[in-house]
Amino acid sequence: MKHTVVALVEDRPGVLNRVASLFRRRGFNIDSLAVGTTEEQGISRMTIVVDGGAGIVEQVEKQLYKLIDVVKVSDLTKEEAVIRELVLVKVRCNREQRRDVLDLVDIFRAQAVDVSPSSMIIQSVADEDRNDALIENLRPFGIRELTRTGRVAMVRGAKTTAVNESESAELQRFHHDSGRRPEGDLPFVSD
């Protein structure tokens, strides 16, 4: 079964590495992983789709919590949530086929975002099932390139997965900046 796990992490160098390394080491299967900034400065939100039974997901959550840079973990699987993924498809398409492709775009409430005499880029924002269906329908035209962002999700209603502890500016600088190259010229040349 697929589980959507949302982890709030300190936006620090190496944090993606730590999470990826944990999944590899413990043999958890990641279907997709999406990372980006959040409402809170210095915190990134990772949306991870994990394949596995309840026992696996329990371990995923607990092992994630052991990482010092992971602040909060939520399993959205049992929640009512808005689930979206963005897909870009470059499909082979000449002038005669254009109308047919645009019909599909309409049906799937996708968008055509680029056109050339021999191709078109279709963008779709939907859950993975609808995106899968769109891709299957576009396949007969010939898919030249396909890219997907992986799932992002948000619980419906007033509930959030946000952190409930803010840090002082001092600590924020430490947790956010430490391990990064300082700006500007370095004063020292190594021997």
């Binding site: 190496g14 390394s21 944990l22 010092i68 430490s178 391990g179 190259r181």
Partner: peptide, 11 residues
Amino acid sequence: MPAVKHNYLVM
């Protein structure tokens, strides 16, 4: 990284 409780590179 996979062998520690936590690690740091101090820049």
